[in-house]
Design a protein around this nucleic acid. Structure first.
Lengths: 220, 220
DNA sequence: TAGTTTTTTGTATGTGCGTTCAATTTTTTG
DNA sequence: CAAAAAATTGAACGCACATACAAAAAACTA
């Protein structure tokens, strides 16, 4: 045993991370200061360095929380999917959670994207997300779409999802339903008639050796 | 007459803006400080406020320069296009200039996107760019593609271009040629056979009442 | 309750930033 | 060339930030 962590320690950590997340959503990555975080948590400014090594630590934990929230929001629809096509719809739909696909959230995510170019830890989180999307789509397409075309398909859908989030950050872009619709249209157009039939007819293998049926909401 | 601008004044302005652009590309938006800008221009730190009202002014001018560079890089291919299809290819291709579709440039652009959520001036520049892409695509599709489908088409292509730039910022994404190829594939898939034939056969109206044949490279 | 540890506070410190400005150098003018 | 104007310098200022830390408060223990 190295450390006997107290309950209060974990609690304060969580409170600070959640406070950071609130400030992050409200003021963006630039407006995120230690003082504001502590203020939002109802604590004294010095408390942060007692529970964290520094600001970077809180930031990283906060981005992870953000990712977890985005992911959790998307899982719901997956369970009800009984065909591959429905599963595809659930994945796409899960990438645009109704209450999260909003300008401020999108902009926050965008800031992290921009920052991850010079921050390996963020870049790693992002890679994990992309990999999960790919894995989810693989569970839909494998056996129906030729593997040679699979890469392009994943890339096109993923890129489009990213682009829609990016535009959402500007505030004047498509809303959730239109975004889902657009991606589904593109997916439909990219598939052959034969493939579309295959996706509609076959039942998905649930609980098999394939990847877990987790939605992959939000691009980062 | 309000101001008798000297030659040296315009020259220094230009030098500072270009220096800012270099620093911007090298250190990102966060690493862009007045000191570094002046240093890159080979001048003293105080010079900046002599030629500009403040840092924000240089920043804005720099983003405009960045846009102008991106635009200029894409015009080339347009002139040689003789069919609508070739024009479409030129527009898409022009959105990924060979020497500019690089991680650092993409990341710089991404920073501006993120910042434009809280900066009306940046947002305005971005809107102009989107409008121009739409206008360019309109000159390709009008008369061949039903206007009811035009919006979706523009949106899909524009979003995909944005997404590819976003991913390019991470450094591990598609290169220029693959990006162009992917967007063209999507464009092909979204068009009907009839429309594709129409685009290939008809000659584009150049110098007509349509929009100018300017490429629209880079999303912002 | 008295002693000990844990937790919280508020202030202090150092750093880097944008900006200002009087002094200095360079250029222009008569 | 001398006087005036323009251009440039480099140091100084105020500010906001992340962080450190001694003092105070609270919680726990025996």
């Amino acid at each position: 045993m190295t450390k006997p962590r107290t309950r209060i320690e974990d609690l304060r950590r969580k409170e600070l991370i959640e406070a950071a997340h609130r400030v992050f959503m409200r003021d963006g990555l630039d407006g995120l200061t230690t003082k504001r975080i502590c203020e939002a948590a109802g604590m004294s400014p010095g408390i942060l360095s007692y529970y964290f090594k520094g600001k970077e630590d809180v930031l990283f934990a906060m981005v992870r929380l953000n990712n977890r929230i985005l992911m959790a929001a998307g899982i719901a629809g997956m369970a009800r999917a009984t065909t591959r096509w429905a599963r595809l719809e659930a994945i796409i739909s899960g990438n645009f959670p109704a209450d999260l696909f909003e300008p401020n959230v999108a902009n926050a995510w965008l800031s992290v994207c921009a920052a991850s170019a010079r921050n390996p830890r963020y870049a790693r989180l992002q890679r994990i997300f992309y990999a999960r999307l790919r894995s989810n789509l693989a569970s839909v397409f494998s056996g129906v779409v030729a593997s040679s075309r699979f890469d392009d398909l994943v890339l096109a859908l993923g890129t489009m999802i990213d682009g829609l989030w990016l535009r959402r950050a500007s505030g004047e872009a498509l809303g959730r339903d239109d975004a889902v619709c657009l991606v589904m249209n593109v997916a439909t157009a990219l598939l052959t008639e034969e493939e579309r039939v295959g996706l509609r007819l076959e039942s998905p293998r649930i609980g098999g050796s394939g990847p877990p049926p987790h939605a992959q909401p939000g691009p980062g």
